[in-house]
Design a protein around this nucleic acid. Structure first.
Length: 109
DNA sequence: CCGTTGACCCTTC
DNA sequence: AGAAGGGCCAACG
């Protein structure tokens, strides 16, 4: 039996290494649907606690809505705490911190 | 089974 | 360069 989409998202987000960040499009791509970035957001909305959802940003490196996981301020603080450098524009440098899965994220499956 | 919704992304003005 | 609109895919009622 195949896991549901949100289930894959949880696994992927849980796989994001510390000091790195990911985007909804990246997760959707790894999940198997490059255009299902919205589903990723919906999945994270229903995601249980324990997932580093604060490491998931927009395609531009900007943070998501304020209601997400508690507030943008919290997210920025958490990312800085993880060692993610922030640009003066208030965005994260995806070129330096974007999660780059060398091996198949499903190696554990 | 069909319609609606959603923590997005991309194209165009 | 910035802002607005539409499209896409899957889960839920």
């Amino acid at each position: 039996m195949e896991p549901t989409f949100p289930q894959k998202i949880y696994h992927l987000v849980s796989r994001i290494p510390l000091g790195n960040v990911s985007t909804y499009g990246q997760l959707s791509l790894l999940a198997g649907s490059p255009r299902a970035a919205r589903i990723v957001g919906a999945a994270l909305a229903n995601a249980p606690a324990g997932l580093p959802c604060h490491r998931v940003l927009y395609r531009d490196g900007s943070l998501c809505c304020d209601q997400a996981f508690g507030g943008k301020e919290i997210q920025r603080k958490l990312l800085e705490q993880e060692g993610v450098p922030f640009l003066p524009d208030g965005r994260v440098d995806l070129k330096r911190c974007l999660w780059q899965p060398d091996e198949s994220p499903w190696d554990s499956l």
